[in-house]
């Protein structure tokens, strides 16, 4: 038998993952103009990899229906080329006057953040519904 608490934990893993997505999108936006990172190169856009995570619960170990959580499998760097901008006065400009800027695209980050925020909301709503069901079942014990 699957338990509602397993479902809440699955939703909680999703909250964690979506929060990570928002954090990464925000740091991408914050570093949209960072021409120097620790390796001397411009900042590279980060992306979150998500993977589903079964086999964590007791039910899953028994091969029964259980909630499937999600986990952040890794944060990878986007390998698309940097943007180039002509700005000879910039201290990081090359000999031709071009500056290499991070491969961050504002629109893309905004869309990512919106998607993550909506998914976060959906999981919060799911937790609310599960909690109502638990409360409802506890009413059986009332006199």
């Amino acid at each position: 038998m699957s338990t509602l608490y397993g479902a809440i934990s699955a939703s909680a893993t999703a909250l964690d993952a979506e929060r990570t997505r928002i954090e990464v999108a925000v740091s991408n936006m914050a570093n949209a103009e960072s021409t120097r990172s620790t390796d001397g190169q411009p900042y590279r856009r980060r992306d979150v990899m998500l993977a589903s995570e079964p086999g964590q619960t007791f039910e899953a170990a028994l091969g029964q229906a259980g909630a499937v959580g999600v986990r952040v499998a890794g944060i990878v760097q986007d390998q698309t080329p940097f943007r180039r901008r002509y700005e000879p006065s910039h201290p990081d400009a090359d000999a031709d006057g071009f500056v290499m800027l991070p491969n961050v695209d504002g629109e893309q980050e905004m869309v990512d953040m919106l998607g993550a925020a909506r998914a976060y909301q959906a999981n919060i709503a799911a937790i609310g519904m599960i909690r109502e069901m638990v409360a409802k079942s506890l009413e059986l014990g009332k006199g």
Partner: peptide, 26 residues
């Protein structure tokens, strides 16, 4: 009630994986 709980659990798992690539809804 057991079936309702199982449905709730399955949907919670699906919602948790709403952005997981190649995840198939159950």
């Amino acid at each position: 009630m057991t079936i309702a709980v199982a449905k709730q659990v399955a949907s919670a798992g699906n919602l948790a994986n709403i952005d997981t690539p190649n995840y198939k809804a159950k």
